Simulated scan of single mutants.
Amino acid sequence: MNTNGTLMNAEQWKRVQTLFKEIVDLEPDTRHERMESVKTEDPILYEELRSLLAADSQETSLLDGFAIDHVDLSDLFPLEGVQVGSFLIEKKIGSGGMGNVYLANRTEGGFEQSVALKLIKYGMGSEQAINRFLGERSILARLQHPNIARLIDGGITGEERPWFAMEYVKGENILDYCKNRTVPLKGRLKLILDVIDAVQYAHKNLIVHRDLKPDNIMVTGEEDFPMIKLLDFGIAQILEDSEPKQIEFKSHDPGLCFT
């Protein structure tokens, strides 16, 4: 939505992107002349450009790169019913710093499969954001453990937005699971041991999660046989030749604390 409250369509946004990258590096006088011509041609695009250029000039920007590369426009372009790779998106189920996560269903291959499909946010096209997103996909490809949500597929959309599909984990985070079922201490310790086993496996593969919290530790499976699944390696770190780092997990629940 632009500064006038009018919803922009995909073609208008592509035009804004092109104009922004054309104008942003121009000298002040030349920029003013070019902006005036845009204003005459299309006042709506002019207002959007003016807003983006103002945001880009602010020294307090939280991210490197152009402001336009960090604008999340995903809500302007709903993806329900859109095909990505072999999967048809059903609905949005989560959102992170760089990407949105969707429940999607396989439409090719002759078998049914639901996945959590992560797609870089519309508008976040900076090299920094893409590299970080692809880094998460690369990390997941290295991890094959029953207590870590596995990577299933990945690729690039026709709009050159990277994506990857992960195992869809249907369950509750570890705190909610234990509270809702009044899990006894022995059961909680068993879950924690499974978390430790998955973290140790990641460490052996020189990967530190760096965001190990209850929301990223899901419990799924049958009630008699609960299974831990670690999620979200988006800010994980690969330790090529560095020293192992201590992982700390904290919870407000005294029955679920360890370091």
Rank of each mutant, 00 (worst) to 15 (best):
T40D: 08
A55G: 13
E48R: 00
S51C: 11
L52T: 06
R50H: 01
V24F: 10
E48D: 00
S37Q: 14
V24D: 07
T60Y: 15
L26G: 06
E41R: 15
L52V: 07
L62F: 13
S61L: 13
V24Q: 10
R34S: 12
S61M: 14
L52H: 08
A54N: 08
K21S: 06
S37W: 03
K21C: 04
I44V: 10
S57F: 01
D56I: 00
E48T: 00
L45C: 00
S37M: 12
E22C: 02
A54T: 13
R31K: 12
M35Y: 06
L49H: 02
F66W: 13
E27A: 14
S61P: 02
S51Y: 15
K21V: 02
T40M: 10
L45I: 05
E22H: 09
I44N: 06
P28Y: 04
D25V: 02
E22S: 08
L63G: 11
E33G: 02
L63V: 15
G65A: 07
I44T: 11
E59Q: 11
K21P: 00
T40A: 12
L52P: 04
P28T: 01
S37K: 11
M35A: 03
E47W: 12
Q58M: 14
T60L: 12
I44L: 06
S57K: 06
R34D: 07
V38W: 02
I23V: 06
E36Y: 01
V24H: 05
E47L: 14
V24M: 09
S51I: 03
D29R: 15
E47K: 14
E41L: 13
R34H: 12
Y46G: 07
P28G: 03
L63Q: 14
D56R: 01
